[in-house]
Simulated scan of single mutants.
Amino acid sequence: MEETQILDVARDGIYTMILVAAPIMLAGLVVGLIISLFQTLTQIQEMTLVFVPKILVVFIAMLFFLPYMIQQLTEITERLMDLVVSLP
Rank of each mutant, 00 (worst) to 15 (best):
I55L: 15
I60D: 07
T77V: 03
I34L: 14
I76R: 05
D8R: 12
V31K: 03
V57T: 13
A61V: 06
E2N: 15
L80Q: 04
T42I: 12
M69P: 00
V9T: 09
G28M: 08
Q71V: 00
I76Y: 02
L87D: 06
V58S: 08
I55N: 02
D12S: 11
L26A: 14
G28H: 04
T16C: 05
M25C: 12
F65E: 03
P88D: 03
P23L: 12
L63C: 07
P23E: 06
G28K: 03
E46S: 09
D12T: 02
T42Q: 09
Y68I: 00
L66N: 06
V85F: 10
V85E: 11
I55S: 10
Y15C: 01
Q39G: 04
A22M: 13
Q45M: 13
G13N: 04
I18Y: 03
V52E: 02
E46R: 02
R79Q: 11
D8W: 12
R11N: 05
L26R: 06
T4L: 12
D82S: 12
L83I: 07
P23Q: 05
I18Q: 01
T77I: 04
V57I: 15
F38N: 12
T74M: 07
P67E: 08
M81T: 07
F38H: 15
R11F: 11
L41Y: 15
L41K: 11
